[in-house]
């Protein structure tokens, strides 16, 4: 069951009330990021950037160690009279690979964590939540008795439309 709101301010207030009443919010949909929504929903900070740091560090090591191996062990070539192990020359490539690993790693992680990817279909509650509507949804599969009170709550909190949809 979900309620559609016309304005993000009304939605924020509704989310706050729902949290105060300890209602079990399933999800909130919005066409754009809303300031202050995350702390209201009690979401913890994303750990994606920590993963990003690890990927970056792996990229740094991969690039640096690989070049070290290539230019000192596998195929030593003298470039411009420089020593085989020329650290300054490795830095730009090391930097690039750090960025590449961090960005690709983070994208892949993001999709994996969110169950996204090619071929995945996303059931959409209402097409307008990607346009001008803000949606607050509850899961009512198991709790038949709560449906009426939830409906009342959504109505009271200013939802312009309340619907139920099976997905």
């Amino acid at each position: 069951m979900f309620g559609l709101y016309d304005d993000e301010e009304i939605l924020l207030k509704a989310v706050k009330e729902a949290r105060d009443k300890h209602l079990d919010i399933d999800n909130v949909y919005s066409p754009f990021p809303i300031h202050g929504l995350d702390p209201l929903l009690g979401l913890s900070e994303s750990r994606l950037h920590q993963a990003g740091f690890v990927y970056g560090a792996i990229g740094t090591l991969t690039a640096f160690l690989f070049m070290t191996w290539v230019f000192t062990r596998d195929w030593p070539i003298i470039f411009g009279g420089k020593p085989y192990w020329s650290v300054p020359a490795f830095i730009p490539i090391t930097f690039e690979l750090t960025v590449l690993f961090a960005s690709i790693g983070m994208v892949v992680t993001f999709y994996a964590v969110n169950g996204q990817g090619p071929g995945v279909t996303n059931p959409v509650l209402d097409d307008r939540i990607t346009d001008d509507k803000f949606c607050l949804s509850f899961d009512v599969t198991d709790s038949d008795e709560g449906v009426d009170s939830l409906k009342a709550f959504l109505k009271e909190s200013g939802a312009s439309e309340i619907r139920t949809k099976e997905i």
């Binding site: 411009g80 009279g81 300054p88 020359a89 830095i91």
Partner: peptide, 12 residues
């Protein structure tokens, strides 16, 4: 800093 250093190092 590094751009300046590396170019000078490379050019030698």
């Amino acid at each position: 800093w590094f751009s300046q250093y590396m170019l000078i190092w490379y050019g030698n």
